[in-house]
Write a protein that binds this DNA or RNA. Structure first.
Lengths: 121, 121
DNA sequence: GTAGTGTATTACATCACATAATACATCTAC
DNA sequence: GTAGATGTATTATGTGATGTAATACACTAC
């Protein structure tokens, strides 16, 4: 499993967050499926040439947000998603998407154009 | 102009960023209109009990993003928006809103429900 | 001249982030 | 039992972001 995600050291976003977002996107886009095992902390650390503790921090937050689960001695696996269960996260995302949409409208993008973009997803 | 924005010291988001986002939201929502003067760096610092340099950092970024403009000796004013001019920011927001929408869909929120939320704005 | 404004600089303290090293517990295969 | 692989935890250290404090300068309006 080569180059599954990448890190940009110039990116001001912390490394552990880039790792977290990288895996989250792979899960959301279906590249990683439910119950699939993801690279171990040490393996990922070696591949990205960063510290295993940094990877563990990323994996820890992924688990906290319900995207993966970790089993001592076995590894880290993609958690099955239970539709509409993670209400706290859904609420948070709705607030964020509303903010972004308001800013887009303020910048002159028509609401139908925004809706059209989402319709294409 | 009392309590125009507020700061939450427990919020992990840096203070300068809370100030920036606070003003940005006031501008986007129309609470602050084009060419309106916003509180001076020293005035805002006093009201929020934080350092003027921190306020200046927030205002500096607002100016860099095109929301305000600063005039030495006069103050800081809401910049008039030119529809569809800030294409770089629009592109950035579109990528973000797509990411958020994908995550919402992954979490079980139906696309029509997301579109309905945006339609209400 | 004075008051109010933005802007800049230096120095300092705190905290987030990342690394390095090490060790422990669990699981699996042999 | 042991080795290898796995997650988990801890301590110590260094770097950079953040925020403060203090000070000074230039500009504007009166």
């Amino acid at each position: 499993m080569i180059n599954i995600i990448s890190i940009d050291l110039k990116n001001p976003k912390p490394i552990f967050e880039q790792v977290k977002d990288g895996f989250k996107n792979l899960i959301i886009c279906g590249v990683l499926s439910s119950e699939e095992k993801i690279p171990s902390v040490r393996e990922m650390a070696q591949e990205l040439a960063i510290n295993p503790n940094t990877i563990q921090k990323a994996y820890r937050e992924l688990e906290a947000e319900g995207y993966v689960y970790q089993v001592v001695g076995k590894g880290t696996f993609v958690a099955p998603v239970v539709p509409l269960e993670n209400q706290a996260r859904i609420d948070e995302l709705i607030l964020e998407i509303e903010d972004l949409a308001r800013e887009l409208i303020y910048l002159g993008v028509a609401k139908p154009d925004i809706i059209s973009i989402l319709d294409k997803l």
